[in-house]
Design a protein around this nucleic acid. Structure first.
Lengths: 240, 240
DNA sequence: TTACTTTCTGACCACCGGTCAGTAAGTAGA
DNA sequence: TCTACTTACTGACCGGTGGTCAGAAAGTAA
């Protein structure tokens, strides 16, 4: 039916304008300092209306995290689809995470902000479950890349793809978060820029994973990867 | 004066009982779900009294973080004082961090919980400054150990102690935090225990840092370090 | 025009962080 | 022991916030 369709569309649109408004104010004042009334005003609706679309302030915040994860997933996909060896693509994933942090610092921060409220933050909650599944999907991207890397010889064969992906996930996320909390402090007291530190850390990780013999593809040199290197030089990647 | 002394002592004691009470309730219900009235009741004081000792709920929470940092610092000191090569002691620091997480999961979690409320979370605030300085101190422990490791040959000489310590700080912290958020999930879906994953990650980091030639001290074998190994085997450590 | 559904809202509530005037307890000097 | 003063504490209160609900408004179908 046309009308039902239109209604569905408009409903989704309303929902989006609410999330837009929430985002704007959450990001400018912090979650605990913004009131539902302010969000309502920004969205040009009454507070009660917002509660028709979202059960609670927390759920509204989750909608923002969902947006963030969507974007990040697309960033990752770009890195995965490169035609390069596994190690190189792994570098690029890390690079993408950093780029995401730079492009959307607020989205980035929001992803780490969940207070463990057991009442809300449980697998039963469909919204949370969805977030979990998104995270799982990104994790599996990492696993696949590491597997590829082992297969194409760029990554040590005694590396466990599952554990490594988990480790990198936690490390990189936590790492960038630390940086985001202390970027000023970093520059002021240690005279190190965030970008520099990220790059350095990626080198460290590369050191931990790379095959001593190097990637068999002659043109692939994971030691010298940086953001400008768009990949595509390593011809050794096996196509499925 | 005796009386002034006693008063000072009693004041400190009151403060501690308040923090005790706050800890108990914060940890059981989460920070945003506990009220100051509840804390007051647990401390057997009126709410107004609590505000004589702490300016705000946030400041009270900071007092808990301070406790956490004190404990963690002592854990680290134990690892530092081992008579072992730099790389081995670095392993032990990571081990200690994990042990701290196991012994005091709530303290651990609390340290990462700061919402960036710029109004409160600034260098001007003496309480925050104190926390920063504590963090700085722990960071310098890491730097020193890495320097020792380079000197005694257990760590690659082209490693930058400052950047590496920063990277490890962020990585390990974020890593364990991820684990803490998803420990159940980890076991259920990936059949990996937290301890196992930590150990694996430490091996990864070791791989990234260790000198290819190994620690010159014959008896030191950083590849095979685990929690039971209390160190003290590597005689190559230079004493200042 | 009427009957019905969907969408929205003003007014309200319970609760919470934080304040303040005022009380109780302790101290010091006479 | 009485008095003046300081310190430690509290009950009662306030403004603001997340969340609710009865009912208005707008849209739809006949």
């Amino acid at each position: 039916m046309g009308i039902a369709d239109r209604r569905e569309r408009e409903k989704l649109q309303r929902r989006n304008t609410i999330v837009d408004a929430a985002e704007k104010i959450f990001f400018s004042k912090g979650i605990s300092n913004t009131t539902m009334d302010e969000i309502a005003e920004e969205a040009e609706l009454s507070k009660a209306t917002i509660y028709l679309y979202f059960k609670s302030k927390e759920e509204l915040y989750c909608a923002i995290i969902q947006r963030a994860m969507d974007i990040l997933k697309n960033y990752f996909k770009e890195a995965i689809d490169l035609n390069a060896c596994g190690l190189e693509r792994l570098y690029h994933i890390a690079q993408k995470l950093y780029q995401f942090y730079k492009d959307y610092p607020n989205y980035f921060e929001s992803m780490f902000h969940r207070e463990k409220n057991p009442e809300y933050f449980s697998y039963e909650n469909p919204m949370i479950k969805d977030l979990m599944e998104q995270g799982e999907e990104m994790y599996m991207m990492g696993v696949q890349i590491i597997k590829d890397g082992i297969e194409d010889g760029s990554i040590r064969s005694d590396v466990d793809p599952y554990k490594t992906a988990l480790a990198l996930d936690g490390m990189l996320g936590g790492f960038i978060r630390t940086i985001s909390l202390e970027e000023d402090h970093l520059m002021k007291y240690h005279n190190i820029s965030a970008a520099e530190l990220i790059h350095y850390s990626m080198e460290l990780i590369g050191h931990a994973l790379k095959n001593k013999d190097g990637c068999p593809g002659k043109k692939c040199n994971p030691d010298k990867i940086n953001a400008k290197n768009k990949g595509g030089k390593c011809k050794n990647r096996k196509e499925k």
